[in-house]
Design a protein around this nucleic acid. Structure first.
Lengths: 195, 195
DNA sequence: GCGAGATTTCAACATTTACTGAAATCTCAG
DNA sequence: CTGAGATTTCAGTAAATGTTGAAATCTCGC
């Protein structure tokens, strides 16, 4: 499609970075992270070196306020850290460079922020109708509906408990996530699966 | 906190459904699915029976157009199906009731829509700077930067290849997802882990 | 093949979410 | 301490996203 000659040297690197930033920003917004925040992260990750607020603003063409808020949020997520450079008043920021550690941090935060509260709500919701099923008494239609409802909720709860549990493993100390994934793949591969 | 007496009978069921719908809608929007679409799904899932467009509109207080579009999207995701009732001109809709099947479908679609294109882009981006690293020649700073850049990209690619691969297993025929998760938990549990 | 009843589409609108820029606040070298 | 330089905050505004409702389209029993 694009028939322009391939850029070489610095241009190629710059273009690769820009495309990575764009793609990462897109990915972010598909998964509920604001585009800019994802782009800031992408920039720090792909450039691999500490950048200051002004460099981020300049490169991504965003306002100072936006840059500040995005950087703050990324730090809250635990995937970007501040770094002082001595003899320099500015703050510099670096992204976690280990890809697996990066995703462990992301999973940790999303579980904490979204799955755990969801689980808590599901338990509460389950309690609203908990008293209905067990005892016998006349088998009304109402009871049948409630019982089916409870079953659905229980299965959902079960699912998210499993997710929560699996994530704990994935997230926990060094390398676990990688190991889990790798062993899983290996085990499956030895069964001579489809393409 | 809430000290009102607990609702019983039909009221309790209705309230439980409403809260489930709210919570599910919230979850959806945190993960990049529009609130309404998630709510429509929640309603179909939790009520467990075929509902027609008007029932959905009525219960969620949304317009006909919105209901139609949400239902269509849910069908595209493969988690809601149409059902004719004979002697009735209306279409009825049901949500996948098996929780694991539901999430397999969701994972399948998200991988297809988001991860696969991302992988393709990452390969393209990697190609932009692929020629730089290998050969020797004078070791410029440029080369060092590019080489580090390539390493980061390669690790990212590796990660998403693994994700893609794992998802294939999870998504593939009946029960695999459950088995994988369960076996993983069992294996880990037998190590006498923390809480 | 007609048409009543149902669904889909889409331009206009509403709501939500994200961004800006300047003022307030913070900080550290001198 | 002081204040120049840096960061954070936030009210106002811009952009993106989601929703409506009515017209266009589809569909199926007759």
């Amino acid at each position: 499609m694009d028939t322009r000659p391939k850029a070489v040297g610095p241009e190629a690197l710059r273009e690769a970075q820009d495309r990575f930033i764009a793609v990462w920003g897109q990915m972010g917004s598909a998964w509920g992270i604001s585009r800019t925040m994802a782009e800031v992260h992408a920039l720090l990750f792909i450039s691999g070196q500490p950048l200051c607020t002004d460099e981020v603003m300049e490169r991504l063409q965003i306002s100072r306020g936006n840059a500040s808020m995005s950087l703050r949020a990324l730090q809250d997520w635990g995937i970007v850290v501040r770094a002082h450079k001595r003899g320099d008043r500015k703050e510099y920021y670096t992204a976690e460079q280990e890809v697996w550690a990066l995703f462990r941090a992301i999973v940790r935060e999303r579980i904490k922020r979204e799955v755990d509260p969801l689980l808590a709500s599901l338990y509460e919701i389950r309690d609203l109708t908990a008293g209905i099923t067990p005892d016998a008494g006349p088998a009304t239609e109402m009871k049948a509906l409630t019982s089916a409802h409870n079953k659905r909720l229980d299965e959902m709860l079960d699912f998210f408990r499993t997710v929560e549990s699996l994530s704990q493993r994935f997230v926990s100390p060094a390398g676990r996530g990688l190991q889990i994934a790798a062993s899983l793949l290996r085990r499956e591969d030895s069964r001579g699966g489809v393409s």
